[in-house]
């Protein structure tokens, strides 16, 4: 590539730095508020950096009113969210790898039509399905349990099938042919040849499933009834409606608790994330 002139490089650098400040600012403000004593949140002009870091805001937000009736500690929400995430991620991986294998590496009648239909379902907005799905789970007497939120994950999702299929198709067919010549069954080929080679793809799908469950608000809002079964997203909204406009420092500490695990996860799996998102844009 031709050497760019210095001026342009500096210009781009300056714009990027300015934009970074803009993008980082809300997150920094979140953390700054979360670490402030309550008086400093209300001061005008604003206090940028807390005079004394109130780490106990986090502990307070996590256990707020644990001894009092009616306030469910954040830890319970966290546990519920974690349970759901495990079940959803496990289900997503278990079902979609198998299904995507069928779409990518097996021949059966109606496969391509089914695949097209699968892609088309990505256009179906959740609100259309909301009412009948609720009626269905009602019929199964699953309302108020976690089941409506994780069971569907065990039966495949269009997006994950699509992503995994694309991956599976990049593996050379000779690989499975060779294994079959050795007498391996289709299941063995899937389990021992294809799956191990697709770990990065599976990780991407798992990551997205985790994020989706962690962030989901509408599902828990509809299906969960009892506070002790609430997830973090729902709990945070409940917390906000109870304490909004009051203890902004605790509210921001609670928000940080919801945000932090995702960001930590990102730093550990950065490469996967970026790979996965780049792949989302594939045609």
């Amino acid at each position: 590539m031709k050497r760019r002139n210095l001026l342009a490089t500096v210009g781009i650098e300056v714009v990027l730095i300015a934009m970074s400040v803009v993008f980082l600012f809300p997150l920094l403000w979140l953390i700054s508020t979360a670490l402030k004593p309550i008086e400093e949140t209300m001061r005008i002009p604003p206090v940028w950096i807390p005079s004394k870091l109130q780490w106990n805001n986090f502990a307070d937000a996590m256990t707020y009113g644990a001894d009092k009736l009616g306030y469910i500690p954040f830890l319970v929400y966290a546990r519920n969210t974690l349970l759901l995430c495990i079940l959803v991620v496990a289900g997503t991986v278990a079902s979609n790898t198998v299904v995507a294998y069928a779409f990518a590496r097996l021949r059966w009648r109606g496969r391509d039509a089914m695949f097209a239909a699968t892609l088309a379902t990505m256009m179906v907005p959740f609100p259309v399905l909301m009412v009948p799905t609720f009626a269905l789970f009602r019929h199964l007497e699953w309302i108020g349990t976690f089941r409506p939120l994780w069971v569907p994950a065990w039966f495949g999702s269009a997006f994950s099938i699509f992503l995994l299929r694309q991956f599976f198709r990049t593996l050379p067919f000779e690989l499975s042919e060779a294994a079959k010549i050795d007498g391996a069954s289709e299941w063995r080929v899937f389990r021992d040849v294809v799956l191990p080679l697709c770990k990065p793809a599976i990780a991407v799908v798992a990551l997205f499933a985790f994020m989706g469950t962690w962030n989901d608000f509408l599902g828990p809002l509809i299906y969960l009834l009892d506070q002790k079964t609430f997830t973090l997203a729902l709990g945070l909204q409940f917390y906000q409606s109870q304490h909004g406009g009051t203890q902004w420092n605790l509210l921001m500490a609670a928000s940080t608790i919801v945000v932090a695990p995702v960001i930590v996860l990102f730093f550990f799996t950065q490469r996967l994330f970026i790979q996965g998102i780049a792949l989302t844009g594939l045609k």
Binding site: F23, L24, L30, A233, M252, V258, V259, F266, I274
Partner: peptide, 14 residues
Amino acid sequence: FLPSLVPMVSLAVL
């Protein structure tokens, strides 16, 4: 990229 990781409810509250 970081802001797009913030869960919706936290985003709204923030």
